[in-house]
Design a protein around this nucleic acid. Structure first.
Lengths: 154, 154
DNA sequence: CCCAATCACTTGTACCTACAAGTGACGACC
DNA sequence: GGTCGTCACTTGTAGGTACAAGTGATTGGG
């Protein structure tokens, strides 16, 4: 009965914790980090703006502003797509790649501290199943988790 | 291993769903709704700004702005606290109380649709335990869940 | 071909949130 | 009983996000 209220409370608090850690340690929004992380995992570390927006659950205007700021900081570069003149490719620069590599450990540690370590191994397993079930409703196409891509490759 | 990534995805998506539904159906931010809901559950539907800020995980400046806007809409009233000249009491007006009563069902239905119905009864039970464990890290004083108050009363 | 519709993105404006500084009230100490 | 420090809030300013409009590029039909 009160399960969903607690979930809402978690959903309210957790972003603040993650965001705060990244802002302090890397001058990065959690969303910024997510953008850089998605790029870092893409082939050649390049993604079209539209793809990137889907993977980060962002609207295109929002992504455009964020990428512009990241570009001003030298972490990302934009170039017109050769195959489609309408599209823009966002590429992670060397500095951006370095930023991800130096930021990721601290971020993962924060998640571990506030989530994984708070749960028993059994609960972690349960959580995986629960989050999976929720994502099937919240994100049917698996845009955020990249399930669509993996399905394409397999 | 990928459990925390899925949790992060959920934490990223769920607020948008809840916020969107409330904005459409009630012209209310999820945070606005949370403020009204906390007031509606308080004795006499009155709470000091500081208490309200703790219960909604807000900074005092943020709450001040939000309450001012809610006051302009006639949903909340502010009055100086009789017992402490520094404090301000926020009170839910009759219109605000009506707003909560007409908004709550739709909001609960949304949560039910996107969370409860997506899970098996067993998973709901597991989720309660997991969220509880997480909140002990994220919110040790139980401000959001009101555990502190209940502990005081008991 | 050429024109309309669409697409991919950018820019501009308004709202919301975070941080910093300011105001008035209370408490404690001398 | 005056003064210093703290408390509870409010206000102002900067930064980020959402929605709406605009710019080129591409596709499809006549």
């Amino acid at each position: 009965m009160a399960a969903w209220r607690r979930l809402v409370a978690v959903v309210e608090l957790l972003p603040g914790v993650l965001d705060g850690q990244l802002r302090r340690d890397a001058q990065l929004t959690h969303f910024d980090y997510h953008v850089l992380a998605m790029l870092s995992e893409a082939p050649d570390r390049v993604l079209r703006m539209t793809d990137l927006a889907a993977r980060t659950n962002a609207t295109l205007p929002r992504l455009s502003h964020v990428v512009r700021r990241l570009e001003e900081r030298g972490l990302v570069e934009r170039a017109p797509c050769p195959s489609d003149g309408r599209a823009t490719n966002a590429r992670l620069t060397e500095a951006g790649w370095a930023k991800v590599r130096e930021t990721a450990p601290g971020h993962v540690a924060t998640v571990r501290e506030h989530v994984v370590d708070a749960l028993t191994p059994e609960q972690v397993t349960q959580l995986a199943g629960i989050a999976d079930a929720l994502l099937r409703r919240l994100d049917p196409d698996g845009r955020l988790t990249g399930a669509l891509d993996r399905a394409d490759r397999d």
